[in-house]
Amino acid sequence: MPAIVEISGLSKVYQSGHQALSTIDLEIEEGEILALLGPNGAGKTTLISIICGIVSASTGSVKVSGKDIVEDYRFTRELIGLVPQELTLSAFDTVWNTVNFSRGLFGKKPDAAYLEQLLKDLSLWDKKNSELRELSGGMKRRVLIAKALSHEPRILFLDEPTAGVDVELRQDMWKMVQQLNDNGVTIILTTHYIEEAEEIADRVGIISAGKLLLVDEKKILMQKLGKKQLFIELKQTVDQIPEALGVYNLELSEDGSRLTYTYDPDLERTGITALLQSLTEVGISLRDLKTSQSSLEEIFVRLVNKK
């Protein structure tokens, strides 16, 4: 896949002296879903804002579809749609007017049929004549998505789209994101909900304190950093790990009732069969077995704390 967004050496120092980003290099592939994870103030919104043209970069450059976002801003911005984090809408406008406004702003001729379908897809059609201030928070979020999609962008940025959103809208939204993605739209989203990144993203990037700590395919990331653990509950407690089991990577819980075995699930021989056999040989009988795989969240916390 060719890169649709190429970020190189990008950094941003605000007038206040706050370094929001420091030398970010990132290539976003056409047609992928990239999730950017990071704590508040990590620089996710600044990164998105620079690509969309709201904030100017201090150093470095961004190319969208091969063209520079400053020199060829008309070309690059037409390709991009942005759903901002805050529910910012002009209070007295109607839903229908505001999506038409957005479409026009991005230089597209009016297209009532397209916008009608868009509003229907977002369950907003029956609200088309409502004033924006009358809408609930969830509805406003839908309107912001409709505005971002009104000019048929090829790249969609979603900045914390699920913050303060109920389950139904969240599901609708992910369905829509998936649909757009199926039609070739590249999606970049930031989220706090790590399960969502885990569920929907192709690749995950982790940002902390203005630095991109890593970007990798979700599967590879989880393999690389995700350990698998086997918890062995014992019938009788033991004081220490028997010497015969010393070859295994085992840990004994404090009360002596549980052994934890950490292993790599992708190896051909995980060592589980042998371990179980050895356990029987030393005369330890088991009460229960349980396995767990570290989630993206655990990986994320571990990474952020390490740096």
Partner: peptide, 18 residues
Amino acid sequence: YFPKFTGTIYEIMSAPIS
């Protein structure tokens, strides 16, 4: 001033418009 105040200016800023 009002779009600046409410934040809706983001859309103008991100649009392909001089």
